[in-house]
Design a protein around this nucleic acid. Sequence first.
DNA 1: ATTAGCACTCTCGGCCTTTGAGTGCTAATT
DNA 2: AATTAGCACTCAAAGGCCGAGAGTGCTAAT
Lengths: 351, 351
Amino acid sequence: MSLSERKKRILKAVVEDYIGSAEPVSSKALQGRLDLSVSSATIRNEMNELEQMGLLEQPHTSAGRRPTASGYRIYVNELMGSGDVTQDEAEAIHEKIRKGDEPSNAVSDASKLASQITALPSYAMQAMPGVVTAQRFELVYIDDHTFIIVVLLSNKSVQNRLVTLPTVTKPALLTKLSALFNASFTGKPEGDMTTELIAATERAAGDVTGVTAVIAGFVMEILMRTQVRHTVVSGTSNLLEHPEFQDVEKARRVLGYLSNEQELLRLPAPEADGVKIFIGAENVAEALRDASVVVAKYDAGDNMQGIIGVVGPTRMDYAKVAARLSYIAGGLAKVLAMGVPIGEISGGEDE
Amino acid sequence: MSLSERKKRILKAVVEDYIGSAEPVSSKALQGRLDLSVSSATIRNEMNELEQMGLLEQPHTSAGRRPTASGYRIYVNELMGSGDVTQDEAEAIHEKIRKGDEPSNAVSDASKLASQITALPSYAMQAMPGVVTAQRFELVYIDDHTFIIVVLLSNKSVQNRLVTLPTVTKPALLTKLSALFNASFTGKPEGDMTTELIAATERAAGDVTGVTAVIAGFVMEILMRTQVRHTVVSGTSNLLEHPEFQDVEKARRVLGYLSNEQELLRLPAPEADGVKIFIGAENVAEALRDASVVVAKYDAGDNMQGIIGVVGPTRMDYAKVAARLSYIAGGLAKVLAMGVPIGEISGGEDE
DNA sequence: ATTAGCACTCTCGGCCTTTGAGTGCTAATT
DNA sequence: AATTAGCACTCAAAGGCCGAGAGTGCTAAT
């Protein structure tokens, strides 16, 4: 599918005009916009052909034309320039993401920011693919019935658990177990923590209260949970600002989709670092068939990677949005990759 | 304001019919519903008087009547029975909240649940009023440049921080500092950690690298953050299901309000355990003036308390919603109050 | 105090007309 | 062969009109 230079210019102009106005674009309007010195009739002929090719469509016979999904696709692939981020925005992004002294909230902050500067709902998921292992164990004695398990993970996050038991656990036993766990369980993925190995540790520690099994259980749970993905969604009300979602039914479908974590996990992600765009029916998800998704992937090393994206009408300034998302994703990766304290938080009040 | 028995019955019937149908209620419809043996004309007269009193209103001259905010208020205060929770719902609630083996997510789970069973957007905030202090410190050596700060707080949550420094910190120093912090800083609120006290600790430990100040800084930050409230909002798309929010502008206002954490914090909360209802203009927040808020407070002891509420149209089954929220809040309080491990979590992937 | 009866009001849906934007096509022009 | 002026045609959107129906308020009778 190769378009004449003039067709390209016309398609580009239609897309960009439509993005700005949300109204079908007429041949006369294009004539003013473009500085092609041709009459509106010629432009009409070209538009007609673009319609034959499935790149433009008319809402009804006597209206102007607007891009189809394929039209947007061509625009995105071949015609749009790369949007850039203004000085102000760049500063705002650094301000919000970099300075956030709660690194674990960086992802959620980034999502909020993305929804703000794109005026669209945004979602972010932090994934932990690959295998997470424990690097270091520490058991902190509090009293005979209470102690804390602290685990430093291979991805530099620290997890902890306060354990309260009816049985008595003496500091000496905890010290011994601490050493045994550090000897036997570091560097091992959750799957390698077999019952035999646990039983062996229990014997080695001379534990008769079963506390070894309890600790092992928590450790396994921690390792498992760390692999689970977490998602945030923010700025959902932004969707309602856009004229294409004045239809409540449409808006409901998309917002309903976004509030379902299960569904969200199924959204496709770019393979490598970079931005990917899904236009209208290109989305597998039924609910997103008249929306577009722009999503960026980041990789912060140490098994930490994730995606951050926005959902909006197909009529969207793809260049701008893609540039901003990509910039935010980049900033996020840096913040997360820094050796800066990542482990923190905890407690019932969180999340 | 004391109503005749008959007026009460009529008002009650109007409210309940309107809750079910979303249509203004006519005198004839009431005649069928109520088993008062009076004619529709009599009912009309009564309704007229109720309208004079500001409890009912007509959308236009020749329509039935619906309750005003004051009408709902009287209904809620004096007329409605106490809704009860069905067996099935009770089970679902226990299932979801109790069994959640991630206690720190209990609040967010409860909010999701609330929005599900009420079919309304729901919000929850966990607050930590009162003063949180540290009960126990532990510094875990990892290598010469890395260690973990673990703090057990007075509210039984455990917080941690992975610290990476350019300077060298030997295990011996950490052990010493650990003892000093436990001696000097336990039981003290963040405000009591004066620079003098920190300097004194530094001298006592013979620390020349400044690591003491770094640790103190983190501890203060942890104590401060723990007092900060956290909020969750879920099920926002539910709002759009209700006929009164087919008007996108209205829906946008409410959803916009809900996505602004700052605003949310300003919502009034019940003083003690219990449920409070704010109808229409009773809400101080401008954006909620044509919505109602039902909110329950729970207290899980140990300085952990919070609220969980829903936002919906003024036409809402207050009895049902209040009963369900109250039940959920109760369940949540129990789960959180249990000695069960509360500290856990951490790491960049969370929240 | 209640009620039957009736006139009155107002919304809602359907139908028609007008208006205006924008197109497609044809015939002339370069 | 490509372009263009010109014009007839189409269609959505907005406004006006009408009839139907629901429900009320009021009056006069019980």
